[in-house]
Amino acid sequence: MKSNTKRLTVLALCTAAALILSFIESQIPPLIPIPGIKLGLANLATVFVLYRLGAKEAFTVSALRVILSSLLFGSLSSFFYAIAGAMLSLSVMLILKHLRIFSKAVVSVAGGVAHNIAQIGVSMLILQTDVVIYYLPALLLSGIITGAVIGVASAFLLNKLGEELIK
């Protein structure tokens, strides 16, 4: 990334895109009445930034997206769920990406699973109960499926778009 202005603009653009994806997702009614199961559309932007721009940028965009979307269309408790999910998911994806043996789609799958594990952890803390552990299998499965969907979409996106962003 050469110029600072371009870097700033691209990051702002990705944050805005992530925010829009969050908003679109918040408008989709939940298909399965299990709290925590959702597509994670905003992860598309996170994976994109992680591979195109780097780890620091991905953390920035992801944290900003969570803070802004919680302020705009969430609540305090939804913020804790979202920030824990986003940060754990991104950390796992970062580690797996650096191992350099996994493809993008699979890195995203692991991110999806990590996101949902974080959700379980936070709900244990907030609700002060361990029975949410019964949601673990369903959330693991949904993490695998949604992570794969987003991962494959991200891989296509990264193949088609964005080389010019970092030149």
Partner: peptide
């Protein structure tokens, strides 16, 4: 590596 990771995740699930 991808397959190993995916299959272990499915197994854990």
């Amino acid at each position: 590596a991808d397959l190993v990771l995916i299959l272990s995740l499915i197994l854990i699930c």
